[in-house]
Design a binder for these strands. Sequence first.
RNA 1: GCGCCCGUAGCUCAGUUGGAUAGAGCAGCGGACUUCUAAUCCGCAGGUCGCAGGUUCGAAUCCUGCCGGGCGCACCA
Length: 585
Amino acid sequence: MNVFSDFSDIVQVEIKALQDAGSLPADLDASRVAVDPPRDASHGDLTCNAAMMLAKPAGMKPRDLAELLATRLRAQELIESVEIAGPGFLNLRLGEDYWRDHLRDVLAAGEAYGDSTMGADVPVNVEYVSANPTGPLHVGHARGAVFGDVLASLLDKAGYAVTREYYINDAGSQVDALARSVHWRYREALGEAMGEMPEGLYPGDYLVPVGKDLAEREGDKWRDGAEETWLADFRQLGVDAMMVQIRDDLAVLGIVQSVFTSERALVEAGMVDAVIETLEGKGLIYRGVLEPPKGKTPDDWEERPQTLFRASNFGDDSDRPLKKSDGSWTYFASDLAYHLDKYRRGFGTLINVWGADHGGYVKRVAAGVTALTDGEAALDVKLCQLVRLLEDGEVAKMSKRAGTFVTLRDLVDSVGRDVVRFIMLTRKNDAQLDFDLVKVREQSRDNPVFYVQYAHARSYSVARMAKEAFPDADFTIEAMQGANLARLTDSDELGLIKVIAAWPRTVEGAAEAHEPHRLAFYLYDLAAAFHALWSKAREDTSLRFVVADDPELTQARMALVLGVRTVVASGLRVMGVEPVDELRA
RNA sequence: GCGCCCGUAGCUCAGUUGGAUAGAGCAGCGGACUUCUAAUCCGCAGGUCGCAGGUUCGAAUCCUGCCGGGCGCACCA
């Protein structure tokens, strides 16, 4: 139901027909021919660049080629007119009935409108959040969480077989620190006078209940043993407790991931060994000495031979170590194991959502994935920039003292899940985002959440008016499909249908580019078009949705209103935002 | 020093994967409430798309080099 891809198909058929007729060379590559919305609505409904793309390979003038295609396209029933403009654009205008029929299709599809088969059930793995299990999620995590979750929903809508995944970094030294912190809290709960918590431990009081719970359940059996006797157990206890809390926090944001992969489990299952074996088989591992980075040699730099992966063969700036000096695997090594694991589980498309501070790590992982899968797997790492919390334009004061910070849960509690989810997508992922705790509560056009929700609520408000004017009439979506849409004749009414009709293309484009923020911008535009029509009717009363003495016209316009509602709801669902029926406070 | 990201109206940002005369919001100015909730809308003004080259029918978009900002840079994750 994507207007643009439908007509792109038609254009391709006509190009083929011209080839068969000998009017065009048989070996033309028409893959870059596109049908797009024109920048300027006065150019028509659709624009096609075929003449410019094919002129040179066909050895023709663009205008002549355009004329050839235009003649064939004019014979199409759905196409009202074809004009050739500028350097050779084909500007197509569709008949009004085409748009009216499209609106009927939207109503029939309901919120499934915009669903696409583009993804062809191809498995895609979206890994996001993956915060270290050493503390609660903070606001910075919220952005990646929402981004990844909505991207997953978007890909699902576009027809991919999506898995939402979380990678638990439970093997490094930071979880040892967690274990010691839990032990410290445990002893504290047993009544020991602990004094100041040592450096390097996690001082946040979120571990207090963990220690207390342990003391109650286990008594003092872990208190006096050497660290080796309790470290592994406390590590697991700590990670489990943190993961319960993290999943809880994510659930508050409406996020439920289906796969949680443990780094430690992967290592213990020998996945790193499998990586080493694979890379060694390809001759990509060697013992060598790395050059220190130019211009910034670390103070404790020492030249020594390491086990290295030839990442530079695959576009990285340097080869990368797989083993630490103590003989254990580097994080990079186990991360490669994780990616190989995902690939072996059947995912040829891997999407990772990371914080921008991990940007320097992308190349080496990409190199590793290319090497391990012989270039079969497509890896896309989406980096999310920082979120700056503001209060009415001023940078919000956050205590940077260890252990106290604004958590994700604080944020959701304060402004609500839907607001957090929507606002996080009002910027491109690689642009810094200002989150103003005051502005997002405002009921004004400044606040995109409100503005879009208001469009949805307004559709209900109009429906109530219609029901009041015609108590016996049926304004359900089913009834609207039978409305006489020929009564929609105003150019702004038809224009609104055209905005609605851009939704499937928006979904496909955003899914393909892995850019969920496009949904938020589209919904804002759709809301604006709807509000504008509503307001226009204030001055030109003949355009009002509810026309007291004309039930047929009212019904046709209600069909349009429901079309808008359907798409707004469809979009908000993908974003994980609950569409509201009423906003009146 | 190297790599990645960014640079678009006074401010905050979009820009449909290379399309036609670069768009929104805010701020500014001027308008519209006996209403279908003005919680909104309309109009005006505002630009060397950081700079300089290049690629081609066509560049904010792709390539190269500068300038400016952010992030990162063996044995942390």
